[in-house]
Design a protein around this nucleic acid. Structure first.
Length: 425
DNA sequence: TCTGGGGTCCTAGGACCC
DNA sequence: TCTGGGGTCCTAGGACCC
């Protein structure tokens, strides 16, 4: 029995989710847009084939998509999140050790005999496709970095069969020679430029680089760890338990530029509500909050970008108090006459609720009351749907001009009774 | 007209202390 | 000419990920 890491990665995940419910999206170029319908964040193979790239602003490629009978969609996170959950649940049936790495990726650890790996991975792949409609690729290797490499092989090289197993002695070097250095997990734009300057173009060449150079130029210990993993040594453990977040951010660019402080307050109130909900979910309290306000950096009118921080005397998770502090902070950095594009909140110095330190100004009875209010608040929204109960500060009218644009949104096929697919017989 | 959002980790350098 | 040395803590900034 040999212990190996597997990486399951959904192919073009957002597009695949949409295609499960809408067959007219199959075999044509499809792109999914970021919040605010700004730029392309996910795309189908057909879209890649007509030269569209992730990150491109949609206005630059809109015509090309139309001319190729392509489709454009806003991102539908309710749908993707739910499909992701289905897949992760399936994976737990195949291995007791699963790390959910992102919405569309998971690491697994298996202990099997070397020859069984390929068939077992194929079984998982077929099962997920059948049960959810989502195609996945699976890479297996002696550690996480090599599982990523194997996944790349499964997807893009080696006849694109969707499953690839790296064996340290047999095909490790062969695989590393196929992988370009910027495709290695942990090598981004800046490092890959440095590497190319040094004449390093493949993962294989990276593996054989001088240690001193790697430490100096690729982020110290991070680079050393990465190269060790390419050599087959396992440095990164499987992390099954989601550690609590050390920082929680909530922000959005507006649908339109905003000058009015009241509208900024409304939007900020909404983001603070969102962030504090996450805080309560992991049983934490925030002790430092930051509020920021940005103008549109792509326009040439006057710019004003500022961030302000506040140390809370009593760490809390109580939304109304946090909104109250947030508004005061926003007032301090707001300047009249600027066209703002984005505001948001950052919670940092997050502590465990159990380890709270009390001080002279802490009122136990008041605190218990607040805890009960928030519990009821969260329960109602969980049972009756998001935003059933809201704070008045986020503005209660229907459509807001600060809200993000989502002009191409598909249905909530899996999370709303009113939007289920209708089948004609 | 139009350019996302939410995270983590690491290092370097300054402030401060003895 | 020459300006201690070592440790800790904090923050800003850079790099990466999806």
């Amino acid at each position: 029995m040999i212990k190996k890491f597997g990486l399951i990665d959904c192919n073009n995940f957002y597009v695949s989710c949409e295609r499960v419910f809408n067959p007219s999206l199959r075999n044509v170029p499809v792109v999914i847009l970021s919040n605010n319908d700004g730029c392309v964040v996910a795309l189908s193979e057909e879209a890649k084939n007509i030269g569209i790239k992730r990150g491109t602003p949609i206005f630059k490629v809109k015509d090309r998509i139309k001319n190729n009978n392509g489709k454009i969609l806003s991102s539908n996170y309710a749908l993707y999140g739910e499909m992701s959950e289905r897949i992760m649940n399936i994976l737990c049936k195949f291995s007791p050790e699963v790390e959910v790495y992102s919405i569309d990726e998971a690491f697994l650890v298996f202990k099997k005999s070397e020859k069984d790996y390929y068939e077992y991975m194929k079984k998982i792949k077929d099962y997920i496709k059948k049960a959810t409609g989502i195609p996945v690729s699976i890479g297996v290797g002696p550690n996480k970095t090599l599982a990523k490499v194997a996944n790349h092989m499964a997807k893009n090289h080696f006849s694109k069969k969707g499953v690839f197993v790296i064996t340290k002695n047999r095909n490790l070097d062969y695989s590393l020679r196929q992988i370009k250095v910027d495709e290695v997990w942990g090598i981004g734009e800046s490092y890959s430029k440095k590497l190319e300057k040094k004449g390093v173009f493949t993962a294989y060449e990276l593996k054989n680089l001088n240690k001193k150079w790697v430490e100096k130029n690729l982020g110290g210990i991070v680079g050393l760890r990465l190269v060790s993993e390419l050599k087959g040594i396992s440095c990164l453990p499987l992390e099954e338990i989601d550690p609590p977040k050390k920082q929680i951010v909530s922000s959005r660019s507006f649908g339109e530029d905003i000058t009015d402080i009241n509208k900024l307050q409304e939007a900020l109130g909404k983001y603070i509500t969102n962030a504090s909900k996450k805080l309560r979910k992991q049983n934490s309290l925030v002790s430092v909050m930051h509020v920021f306000l940005y103008t549109n950096r792509y326009k040439d009118y006057p710019q004003h970008n500022e961030m302000i921080s506040y140390n809370l005397l009593n760490p809390t998770d109580y939304t109304p108090d946090l909104i109250c502090y947030g508004k005061k902070l926003l007032n301090k950095i707001y300047k009249e006459g600027y066209y703002y594009k984005k505001t948001g909140v950052i919670f940092s110095e997050i502590i465990d609720k159990k380890n709270r330190q009390f001080n002279l100004f802490f009122s136990k009875s008041k605190n218990e009351e607040k805890t009960k209010i928030m519990e009821a608040f969260d329960k109602i929204n969980q049972k009756w749907g998001k935003d059933t109960i809201q704070t008045a500060s986020s503005g209660l009218g229907k459509k807001k001009d600060w809200q993000m644009k989502r002009n191409y949104l598909s249905q909530k096929y899996t999370t709303s009774w009113n939007e289920l697919l209708k089948v004609k017989i």
